[in-house]
């Protein structure tokens, strides 16, 4: 009788841990915050407007978030029209990131994010933006990522936004960002070393549209044009102020190529190359190759990351300007 009583008394002590066992991971996960690493389907989602912004986000979040990008590689952010699928993607997001400075033509990203009621962070915030004047209007150039030091500002803004959304992962995000910022520093030093091989008077960069102002400014291309882009099409391929191609701009660029002795002109992967090919023919120079500009490369290509895109651009520019000049 006494033994049965004791067995009955202690039975719950044996059963209780077995009953509580499945509950333990649940309480653990809830303590880790919304973005802790869990099953992939439950990861928080960050939706980015452009491929560059998505790459910066991937470098910071690692495996803690799912990173989605609205623009496909090679797509043009100036003229993009969102699809219903994009709205769906944004509605599934915990956070949205955009370039800003009106890169997303007609504010398409801002509109769909606003409609979905999701938080939106602007990655170019705080960048010392270059100004361009068109017909009395001043426009801020949105292609700020073409300077690695501006890319560092993008990364800082991504870390801020992601850490705000998931404070428990801040240490992890900052650790990744610190390493990535060192990679950007190395990229910048490497670009300077490469560009230094081109004599200053041969640093003439002619591209399809005005995307390379920050690049020219940083690495001292186009000295006769105030270290700004030389392109037949304005800052946007769309129809905003100062955008698009005018006959005057086209004539000016053709004349500049002749006058300043550009060794080659370059097409862009996200812009129709027809116009720049015609200009090359008119000016009697060769096409030096295709540069990544508003969009990075396809997955698996050399330009699928920001660093890869910049590296490939430099390799193409060096080849085009040095060997192109010799061939002339």
């Amino acid at each position: 009788m006494t033994r049965r009583f004791l067995a009955f008394l202690f039975l719950p002590l044996l059963i209780l841990p077995i009953l509580l066992l499945p509950l333990l991971p649940v309480s653990d996960a809830s303590a880790q915050g919304p973005a802790a690493p869990r099953e992939s389907s439950k990861k928080p989602v960050v939706v980015c407007s452009t491929t560059q912004v998505a790459d910066f986000a991937r470098q910071v979040v690692g495996g803690r978030w799912t990173v989605k990008c609205i623009l496909a590689p090679g797509a043009d952010p100036h003229t993009y029209t969102p699809t219903p699928g994009d709205g769906e993607m944004v509605r599934s997001a915990d956070l949205c990131l955009e370039n800003g400075l009106h890169l997303e033509g007609n504010d398409w990203m801002g509109k769909i994010v606003h409609d979905a009621g999701k938080p939106l962070a602007v990655c170019a915030e705080g960048v010392p933006a270059l100004q361009m004047a068109f017909g009395g209007e001043k426009i801020l150039d949105p292609h700020a990522w073409f300077s690695p030091r501006n890319a560092a500002i993008y990364v800082n803004n991504v870390v801020k936004a992601i850490s705000r959304a998931d404070p428990s992962g801040r240490g992890e995000y900052e650790a990744r960002a610190r390493l990535y910022l060192q990679m950007l520093r190395t990229l910048d030093a490497w670009i300077r070393e490469q560009v230094n091989r081109i004599p200053p008077d041969r640093r003439v960069l002619v591209t399809s549209h005005d995307a390379f102002n920050y690049f020219c400014h940083e690495y001292k291309f186009n000295p006769t044009n105030g270290f700004m882009s030389l392109a037949p099409v304005g800052w946007s391929t769309g129809s905003e102020v100062g955008a698009g191609m005018t006959p005057e701009r086209r004539a000016e660029v053709t004349e500049s190529i002749r006058r300043f002795g550009a060794a080659a002109v370059f097409v862009e992967t996200s812009v129709n190359p027809k116009l720049i090919r015609e200009i090359a023919q008119e000016a009697g120079v060769r096409v030096g190759g295709a540069l990544y500009s508003d969009s990075m490369g396809e997955a698996g290509s050399a330009g699928e990351t920001y660093i890869g895109m910049m590296r490939e651009n430099i390799v193409t520019i060096m080849e085009g300007l040095l060997s192109g000049g010799d061939a002339k």
Partner: peptide, 8 residues
């Protein structure tokens, strides 16, 4: 340093 992390 222009490549520093200055998040907060």
């Amino acid at each position: 340093d222009p490549f520093a992390l200055a998040t907060d």
